[in-house]
Each structure stands twice: as structure tokens, then as C-alpha cells.
Design a protein around this nucleic acid. Sequence first.
DNA 1: AATTTTGCCTAACAGTGTTAGATTTTAAAC
DNA 2: GTTTAAAATCTAACACTGTTAGGCAAAATT
Lengths: 199, 199
Amino acid sequence: MSSKDRIQKIKEDTRHNILRASLDIVKEEGWGALSMRKIADKIDYTAPVIYEYFSNKDAILKELTRIGYVKLAGKMEEARELSTTPEGQLEAMWLAYWHFAFAYKELYQVMYGVEMNCCSVENTCPDYDRPMNMLWDKIEEITPAEKRSEEYIDRKYYSFWSVVHGLISINLTTQINRDELNREVLKDAISGLINSIKN
Amino acid sequence: MSSKDRIQKIKEDTRHNILRASLDIVKEEGWGALSMRKIADKIDYTAPVIYEYFSNKDAILKELTRIGYVKLAGKMEEARELSTTPEGQLEAMWLAYWHFAFAYKELYQVMYGVEMNCCSVENTCPDYDRPMNMLWDKIEEITPAEKRSEEYIDRKYYSFWSVVHGLISINLTTQINRDELNREVLKDAISGLINSIKN
DNA sequence: AATTTTGCCTAACAGTGTTAGATTTTAAAC
DNA sequence: GTTTAAAATCTAACACTGTTAGGCAAAATT
């Protein structure tokens, strides 16, 4: 039915508008200012309408989190294609992770709980694992065969993630704006870790 | 005046009770559950009374943040005394930082914005800098004279902090409980960084 | 004993997430 | 085209939140 499809499309549009309005509010006024009534205002509805698209406010946050992971995975894929060596690809992927955190600051915050109490729910969405798996696989690829074990790769991934996420969340929470320092520490950490894998 | 002093003491006690009640609530139910009325209930008062001790809710969070920094600095001082070499002291201080984060999880969260939108205010309290200064000084101490510059120490401090804070906040936000992995990554990172300073 | 100060409470305002019920608009059936 | 059923949307309310104003009663001062 054309009519039914059209209605379906409008519903999908509204759902999308809710998410976009939410993100717009957060970008303009921060996570603390996000409210159901404010979202409703932006999409020219009243608050209860939102509950036909999302079971509650947390569900909106959860969906924004999922979108964030998908976007991040996409950016990392793009970055990976620009390099030919596995080492270059791994570095490019971490740099993409880094740039994502600042380009989509609000998404990064809700994804990783930076100045934001994300939905406490179990994160059992397959999209959540994509960025991790991409990095994990690439680390495995550059690991010499004699070292290649789950524990080893786990430890390396964890080391990478810690330093990059630490650097990011320090930058997002304190207003220290020291690009030079960031670049040096980040580059050093990544190249140091890549070296520690190969030798 | 004895009477005036006694009144003063009672007021200080109430102020302290407010802080203790707040922390108790947060420990039991998390930061999201902290409300002025709930605090008031715990200290057998009504909500408006709290405003005679703190100008608003943010002021309570700010004071808890300050207390956290003081406590952290104390723990780090204790740890430093247990070692004799500067390298051992630096490692001990970072391990104290690590242990503080889990022993006083709620304080660490509000101090560093982990799953918690801390008061956005300018952090211009001298206590806030004590832990950083202690670590900074010790890094300076073990840095060879020919390398000793503000930029160098800054970079090393930043590297330490990133990896330790990253590891902590990952542990606090995801419920991955892998003590073995944590210990290895943490020890590796600290010893690796200490080596990178000395050589 | 009268007056001022202090301590504390009640009530309220504007905001929050969320739900129930009424109302309007749209679609389907005759 | 009119009637009926269903879907879409709103208003009103509930129980919360931080915060402030005003009043009442106990304590301290004169």
C-alpha cells in the first residue's frame, strides 16, 4: 500500500527528528539541558508523543549511543583504507578514534560516560563491539606469530585504549587546550605501543 | 564565649553531616539519586536548611570534590613515605592514585567527571593542584638534568596521567572485572614510562 | 517582661520524566 | 456521503527535582 508506506515513512522521519533534535539541544546547551518537553518543542509536538517512538528518555540516549558506535566504526573504516601497511592502518584507526571524540564530542560522552551518566543498561548491542573488533583484528595482524595469543592481544588493545581514552577524557573534562602536547603524547603512545608489539 | 563556640561547633557538625549524608546516599544509590530533600531526610531537617550551609547543590559537589583531592593527596603522601628511591616513590604514588579511585569511587567520579557531570565551575581551588604537583615534582626529580625542562616534564606527567586515568575510567564505566589485565597494563605502563624518563 | 534575633518549617514556583484519559483528526465501512 | 472505527495528538495530572519567600516559634538580648 502506498498510503501505508507513506505513513511508515513519516513515522521513521519523526523518529529521526527526535534523535536529531536531541543531539541539537545537547550540542547547544549540553547534556544537562536535554528534556522531553524541549525535544517535543523542537519537533512541534507535545512530550507524550515521543513515547510512541521511544519507551523513555534512556532509550533515546541508548540509540544515540548506538549511532555513535556506528559512526565511529565508519570513520575508522575510512581511515583504514587510506593506509597500506597494517601498522599505518592501526595508527590511522586510533587517530580516527581520536578525531571522532572531538568532532562528535556529545556522542563520545554518552558512549563512554564522560561527564555524562549514560544509561546503566547492559550494553548488548552488536554495533557496540565493531570499533573494538576492528582494532583488535588489526593488532592481531601485526602481532608476530609466536606471541599471538588472546591474552597478549587483549593486553595490547587495552593499553592502546587506556591511553587514548584517557587523553580524550582529560581533554573533554578540563579546558586545557594544548594541541602540541596532545599530538606529541598521542603519537608517542601509539608508535611506542606498535613498536612494543613488533619487538 | 563558650555558648558561641558551642553553637559554632554544632553548625560545623551540621555542615559535616550534610557532606557525609550526601556521600552515603551516593554510595548507596549513585549520583543520580542525590537530592536535597534526601540529604535533608538523612540529617533530620527540611531541605531549605541545607541552603544555610551551602549556596546550592553544586556547592556540595564542589566541596566533595575538594575533599577528594585532599584525601587523594594524603594517600599519595603515605605511599611516598613507604619507598626510598625516587622511582619507587613515583610508582607508589601512581599506585596510590589507582587504589584511591576504587576505594573512593564516588569521589573520583565527581573529581574527574566519570559518569557524572561535575560542577562546570572554574576549578581555582589550591587543593585541586596538590596531587598533580606531588607527581610533577617527583618526575622532575628523576629526570636527568640535561633533559629537565618544563615541556619535558609536562609531557611525561601527561602521559602517566592519561594511561592511569584512562584505565581507571574504563574500569569504572564498564563492568569488565579483569584484575590480572589491569595489574599488567598498569605496571607495564608505569615502569615503561619511568624507563623512558631515565634513558 | 518586651523585643529582637535565630532556627526551622510550610508552601510555593518552575522545572523534570512519565502516564491516563479525553479529544480531535484520519481512515474504513456501509 | 454519512457513519463508525481507529489512529494521532493533546491536556491534565502525578511524583519528583532545585530553590526561594514568608511565617511561626524558640532562644537570646535588652
